[in-house]
């Protein structure tokens, strides 16, 4: 049984369907990445799974149980954490408070979990009392991921975590995603930096105009000439 499987998902905003029947799965403890050109529906797929876009067809299963159209806090309770691309920290709250908010549904043992997050993201250690809005983009992304990990999720969904970051931070974030995954958390990643993302992933999905174009192991996709020419910038 897969951790997450999306079957024939049709979804969009208002009257417009952006996804026209998308399939994808994430296996427990693995990294799956969705790549594709702008407007392919990568972020929409993630939002639809999390109930932020309207689902008009298909279904979403988590650990074999249907979770289509369930409210966000229920999904968090089941063990899915989601980090949106933009506005992903509480700007006026301190870093520590941001992490605590991630644990809203699971209030026990907060100190231990904050310690774990700090081991994963050491730069946050000295920023704990600072307002998250004052941090740099890369540090904010760490806060956002840390907040999501406070839920101790089985699946972490990251929407373009490296967008707008300097190459240095980009490498750090990819590195941290690997570390998170090594601790047993399944990861679903949407990425613009397709080559780097495929390099750390197990499975890859190439979406174009709301449909699956290629589905294969990440290594095979990287080796596929057609994929490389059309979607990975040569």
């Amino acid at each position: 049984m897969s951790l997450l499987s999306v079957e024939n998902l049709v979804a969009g905003y208002g009257p417009v369907d952006i996804l026209q029947g998308v399939n994808l799965t994430v296996e427990a403890g693995r990294i799956a990445v969705i790549v594709g050109p702008n407007g392919a529906g990568k972020s929409t797929a993630m939002k639809a799974i999390f109930g932020l876009a309207q689902v008009r067809g298909g279904r979403v299963l988590f650990e074999g149980q249907e979770i289509t159209r369930l409210p966000a806090d229920t999904l968090c309770g089941r063990g899915i954490a989601y980090v949106p691309q933009e506005r992903n920290v509480f700007r006026s709250l301190s870093v520590r408070e941001n992490l605590e908010m991630g644990a809203f549904l699971k209030p026990g043992n907060i100190a231990r979990r904050i310690a774990e997050v700090l081991t994963l993201f050491p730069p946050l250690r000295e920023k704990l009392a600072q307002a998250a809005g004052e941090l740099s983009g890369g540090q904010r992304q760490m806060v956002a991921m840390g907040r999501a990990l406070m839920l101790e999720p089985k699946l972490l969904m990251l929407d373009e975590p490296t967008a707008g970051l300097s190459p240095l931070y980009m490498d750090q974030i990819f590195d941290r995603i690997i570390a998170v995954n090594k601790s047993g958390v399944g990861v679903l990643l949407v990425e613009q930096n397709a080559k780097q993302a495929l390099a750390i992933a197990h499975t890859g999905y190439v979406l174009a105009t709301g449909r699956n174009r290629f589905t294969d192991t990440a290594a095979n996709l990287l080796a596929n000439r057609e994929v490389a020419e059309s979607f990975l910038g040569g």
């Binding site: 999390f50 506005r87 700007r91 006026s92 408070e97 605590e100 908010m101 809203f104 549904l105 839920l151």
Partner: peptide, 23 residues
């Protein structure tokens, strides 16, 4: 308090609060 901080979080960004699992 947990609830008081959550109140500030919702005031800061209600959508983010919702997807973070805040009630």
């Amino acid at each position: 308090t947990r609830l008081g901080k959550a109140m500030r979080a919702v005031s800061d960004d209600a959508d983010l609060a919702r997807v973070s699992g805040i009630n």
